[in-house]
Amino acid sequence: QTAWDMPTPYGDTVFHTMNIMEFADDVREATGGQLDITVHSAGSLFGHPEIKDAVRRGLAPIGEILLSRLANENPLFEADSIPFLADSYADARALWAASRPAVEALLAEQGLTLLYAVPWPGQSLYLTEEVTDPAALQGVTFRAYNTATEQLANILGMVPTQVEAGDIPTAFATGRVAAMMTSPSTGVSSQAWDFTSVYVDVNAWLPKNVIFVNTEALNALPEDQRAGLLAAAAEAEARGWAMSEAETATQIATLESNGMTVVQPSEALSAALAAAGAQMTEEWLARAGDEGAAIVAAYEAAQ
């Protein structure tokens, strides 16, 4: 019997984690209990920043991270985080199909095998006041946690402001920040209605979590266990996409039932956001070179 420890970053009630729990059950079932995956959720075994290298160095055979966290390694990892390049599930699927081989190859160079990827619901705007005119965003402080969000804020004339995850409620309550971009899932799990009041459903991008395995550990499995694992992964990918899509509507409804004003972006705002997205796509293409261009070309061909 093989026992695998699986560090994951998010808590037990996040649908990604629930999907992984089911995946672990499926693997146990498919291998007759011969491959037993223990899920260590919420960073309890290794924190989010450590998970990838921990799997790479063989401290744990399998793990999960948010793919775009690796953007500083290679811009190809943040293809799914370019605003408004792919802002629906259909587009996100097409973009993933176009970028998957590149991501797989990059991970394979690191001795990692990609098992599957599941998107978060679209990233939307959380504000303390309703905004219809994009000019009203000028000077508003916006939570930036990486180069891409900082750049987005700058293009929109907002003031990028660094706020750590645990500090978000305090930062909003004390006026250090007045806007952020995150998924309705995270909005609900962090109870965003406690500190913001307006949800603008812009669906800017659908970032993905990836589940990957140390290639050596994978190859060390007997053939039937490996097949069971890969089959369960394929199932988890399909299930995860469905969970994510189903979750979008229910979580937005939860935001609304807790008193948040849920609105669609005005045409003027949509146009401003789309322009920002186009500019950021150009900038990304300049950074990501030929491989990036190939991904965008394949994506546009598939649309």
Binding site: D12, T13, S41, A42, G166, P169, T170, D194, F195
Partner: peptide, 21 residues
């Protein structure tokens, strides 16, 4: 509040840190 423990607990269990504080 503020409290490191409540931030850790809130993050692990999806509870509102503002309410915990």
């Amino acid at each position: 509040p503020p409290s490191i423990i409540l931030i850790v607990y809130g993050a692990a269990t999806e509870q509102s840190i503002a309410r915990l504080f």
